[in-house]
Design a protein around this nucleic acid. Structure first.
Lengths: 189, 189
DNA sequence: CCAAACAGTTCGCTCACCGAACTCTCCTCC
DNA sequence: GGAGGAGAGTTCGGTGAGCGAACTGTTTGG
């Protein structure tokens, strides 16, 4: 969202990172990307962000190297957005902010989602460590599972919300899309 | 800054915390508060935030329980803002965002500030652990010290910038103000 | 060929942010 | 006691960003 006018000398690292992820959509979009959301329409439906703003934010994040855009050939005009290593490195930020929200602004009925270690399925503590084996769990080894506060999705819920009601490994596509509508068109490699 | 219109069901913890600290000033203000900034004019001078916006953000943070406002009697119309326990709990967030900025948007010449463990003065790693003794250092046990990328403050630098050029313990007042009516003038020297 | 799905774009509207100037209160010095 | 200064906000008009809804253009499936 392009920070202030200038930085007038206070170019601290926190201000610099705020230039990229200093606005709610530029945090919620990577958060959903950790959950496996990949496509424009999925972000739009799950986040409720205006499509014009979503276009801008995706371009911002791609330009910043947080997301990368890869067209999916053979599936129509469908683009996929995935986290780059720089985006995956946001995991401590997303986790810390989420943990703070859980602690100080708890949802009625408990957390809507809980994180677990994929190896032993034990929940993670607020610092991102497995409560069972004690290791610091990277995003790729974490599962997101529905928590006690999550209301069951209605029949008209969007596909992302529905898919998030089932345990799922982070960073893997949340919704399987037809790899190629028809594989008769010679697989492009 | 009052999030979107409503939450339309996606009341996840990250969105909830973004309601409070989801905007650059509401992160930079607590960051400065960790550094020991306490007063309206110090925030205004160091952050360069418009005073009207600062008034609003301080009220937001006080209302959210992140800061508390304590008038200092006997010192004129001077207010002090300090972090509450809820505000101190933002430390992992501030640290993680700063570390991400340091790693992916490095400043020319290196970091402007480095964090050290107050007990052994060893620097902290990106996870906030002491590189010497390995303990996870809480904010109250951390020092902020000038890093290699910090240009020496000019003679006309604001007092906060000048004070931050010297090592200093977090969460302690950065600038000593006259406790009562006796105003030792001569902030220079 | 037609309809549906999907990824964006366009378009007013409103509100938040900005910078500068102003006000108000309390304190100190003479 | 009055003048002056320091500090904490407040006021105000201009500008830009975020918003929702409707629209465009392309690809796929029937």
């Amino acid at each position: 969202m392009t920070l202030p006018r200038d930085y007038r000398g206070r170019t601290c690292a926190l201000a610099r990172s705020s230039e990229t992820v200093g606005e709610r959509w530029t945090r919620l979009i990577p958060r959903d990307a950790f959950f496996g959301v990949r496509r424009f329409g999925e972000f739009a439906a799950h986040l409720g962000v205006p499509r014009s703003v979503l276009t801008d934010r995706l371009a911002t994040l791609v330009g910043a190297g947080v997301l990368e855009r890869r067209p999916e050939p053979g599936t129509g005009r469908r683009e996929a957005y995935g986290l780059t290593p720089k985006g995956v490195a946001l995991w401590p930020v997303v986790r810390a902010l989420t943990a703070w929200g859980e602690e100080f602004h708890p949802a009625a009925g408990g957390p809507r989602r809980v994180l677990r270690h994929s190896e032993d399925e034990a929940p993670l503590d607020p610092d991102g460590r497995c409560t069972e084996c004690g290791t610091s769990v990277p995003a790729a080894d974490a599962l997101v599972a529905p928590g006690p506060g999550l209301a069951p999705p209605g029949p008209d819920a969007d596909p992302v919300t529905a898919a998030l009601a089932r345990p799922h490994r982070l960073l893997t596509p949340l919704i399987a899309h037809a790899p190629a509508g028809r594989p008769t068109r010679g697989p492009r490699e």
